[in-house]
Design a protein around this nucleic acid. Structure first.
Lengths: 184, 184
DNA sequence: CTAGATTGTCTAGCAGTGCTAGGATCGACG
DNA sequence: CGTCGATCCTAGCACTGCTAGACAATCTAG
């Protein structure tokens, strides 16, 4: 399992290159600009190479999403450890703003990964666990449901912010209000 | 202004037919299934006819979104008048669940309508006004910001629900928790 | 009632999309 | 040197949104 020969390592490397490049293209010009031809050009291979690594374009987006989820979990932990629920909220929205394409890949684009089942649960549970850990100290009874409510509220702010549907000047105030609602 | 001759009335009628059909197709098979060819087929005209009514496909989606926003405003008012903030929240999420394609057209699909400016403000302000009217009685100071927080929370639940990322069994509990957070 | 202009509609096509079948190329090995 | 196998690319399919230009229907004027 451990020892991969040169070829296998090269393959893995190239798969990672594809995901990395897709992410860069998406962050630069949006997901609509990430087409198989452009992506293939950017990694300097032809389109079929993409399909030898991923089942389809959707799978590439999913790979970017999974990477992003892992990053998000780390960011959330740091924010929480630094300044509790407020730090958590700031970290969440900060990540969504700093990496809109990745956030879209995780949450707003149609994905083939099912969330509730056995598919790719570890990294999601990790992220949800961070949220739960932040909310738990302030929950009187059902912390899990409260976490879902809190998460939804953050997600709503993230997406509505992204589309400029909330007043930008009140951004921080909205976060504080939300946190205060939960902490009581 | 008032008197439109037969032709102009027929044109208006057909424009409405296009929007109505687009909405039906979207609700039936999702927006990805709403292509210019299928839509043209469904209304029994050729594709160019669509473009004599709308600048592009995006404009058709926008038209569906505007119709939906008006409907949503009505539904929100009814919910609020029937049972206050809880009725408002139920109505909002109920509409999003009952008309997922329309809700997507309004909020999650990329739209060419700018929200903060003079473009199509009436109907949006109407909707936001309903939310504001529901939140205001429970706000101690800045009702508008609190409304944005509340709206974001609803929107988050709507979208995360749609993608089965929240436990379905706790749906009602999440709404109640959210409302209780705001009402104090 | 006819000739001309205007309006309406369609056919056919472009450039781009995701995706794939088949052949070319290149390496390792006998 | 020749063969085999993996790797990769060219070329193409069916689809997308969108549009130019030909055609048909309707209205207007004489």
């Amino acid at each position: 399992m451990e020892s991969l020969n040169r070829r296998e390592r090269a393959r893995l490397e190239r798969g990672a290159l594809i995901v990395r490049t897709a992410r860069e293209l998406a962050e630069a010009d949006g997901w609509d600009a990430v087409t198989t031809r452009r992506l293939a050009d950017a990694v300097e291979y032809s389109q079929p190479v993409l399909y030898s690594h991923f089942k389809n374009m959707q799978a590439i987006v999913t790979a970017v999403a999974l990477d992003g989820m892992a990053e998000l979990a780390v960011v959330l932990r740091e924010g929480r450890e630094a300044s509790g629920l407020m730090g958590l909220a700031e970290a969440y929205l900060g990540y969504a703003e700093a990496h809109p394409a990745v956030y879209a890949a995780i949450f707003t684009r149609r994905t083939d990964l099912v969330f509730g089942s056995a598919e790719s649960p570890e990294v999601l549970k990790l992220t949800f666990g961070e949220l739960l850990a932040g909310v738990e100290p302030h929950a009187t009874d059902d912390a899990e449901t409260l976490t879902e409510v809190f998460w939804s509220a953050l997600h709503g702010q993230a997406t509505l912010n992204q589309e400029s549907r909330l007043r930008p000047a009140q951004r921080t105030e909205r976060i504080e209000r939300l946190v205060r609602l939960v902490t009581g």
